[in-house]
């Protein structure tokens, strides 16, 4: 079985804080991580590899430093890693990102493509389904459980009010939720392998066949018109008092506002 896992290197947004004075993001010192939903997708692929044997290829589109995320994936147990990096890809929205990734994946052999449901820096959940459409594959998103059944997969597809148990024939694309598993840590021998034995394959625009009108900023139907930080709302009053006084203050304020 051949599995391609799409991952994204993202800033750990849970570590981001706002500068209370300027209202801007403090980006310094924010670590880069493999996006959590993607990491669970990788873990799901590695479990299939452990159980039934599979070749796991990870792929990412990003700047040269995204190689670090691929090294981590190799250290976790992936067999092959591809970094898709070119200035021509820069500024892509989800449409252009998915068309670029789809073009790269077309060069690979695969039974199953796994992408995380969404990235924590963009939260769009669009790239997975869009890759599936570009490759004309069936898609199942929001997957929380997966099991192989011959040339098909049996999946648990989650909704707000329940779930569907579905069966889909491979090749197909699924998007995974971080709730589905707890990704393994890198092993020492894995780290050694990742840095000594395994190479990250680097592809640029010249390595893939893609319509040049469908990549990067130019191939992106959506454009960012402006971005801004929400002006922080003025903080109210903060009381450093005993718990008893604290409780009284809350009740008073709620009465003042006619909430109780």
């Amino acid at each position: 079985m051949k599995i391609v896992v799409c991952i994204k290197q993202v800033p750990d947004t849970t570590e981001v804080r706002l500068d209370p004075k300027t209202g801007t993001l403090i980006r310094e010192g924010v670590p880069s991580i493999i996006n959590p939903d993607d990491k669970s997708g990788l873990e799901a692929a590695l479990r299939l590899k452990d159980e039934i044997g599979a070749k796991v290829t990870v792929i990412t589109m990003g700047p040269p430093q995204a190689e670090k995320a691929l090294k981590e994936a190799l250290a976790m147990g992936a067999d092959e890693a591809i970094l898709l990096s070119d200035r021509a890809f820069a500024g892509a929205d989800t449409w252009a990102t998915s068309s670029t990734l789809a073009a790269a994946i077309r060069k690979l052999d695969y039974d199953l493509i796994i992408a995380g449901r969404q990235a924590i820096d963009g939260d769009t959940a669009q790239v997975g389904p869009q890759i599936a459409e570009h490759l004309n594959l069936p898609q199942v998103s929001y997957v929380e459980d997966l099991e192989r059944d011959g040339d098909s997969l049996i999946l648990k597809r989650v909704f707000e009010d329940g779930y569907h148990k579905v069966k889909v024939k491979m090749p197909c694309l699924i998007t995974t939720l971080s709730e589905m598993n707890k990704p393994r840590y890198m092993s020492v021998s894995g780290v050694l392998d990742a840095y000594r034995e395994k190479e990250v394959i680097k592809w640029t625009l010249d390595d893939i066949e893609v319509n040049k009108e469908h990549i990067g900023l130019k191939g992106s139907p959506t454009k960012v018109k402006k971005s801004f930080t929400k002006g922080a709302k003025a903080a109210g009053k903060k009381f450093e008092v005993t718990p008893q006084e604290g409780a009284k203050i809350i009740v008073e304020k709620l009465k003042e506002k006619y909430i109780i």
Binding site: A232, A235, K237, K238, F239, G246, A247, I250, V251
Partner: peptide, 30 residues
């Protein structure tokens, strides 16, 4: 804690002490 930046009323204290007392106060006031 950044939560105080958006709070209208902030109480600096142990939530496990404040909340039971708050429950009591609310019961009494009702």
């Amino acid at each position: 804690a950044p939560i105080f930046e958006v709070a209208d009323v902030g109480i600096v204290g142990d939530v496990n002490k404040v909340v039971p007392l708050l429950i009591e106060e609310l019961k009494m006031s009702s």
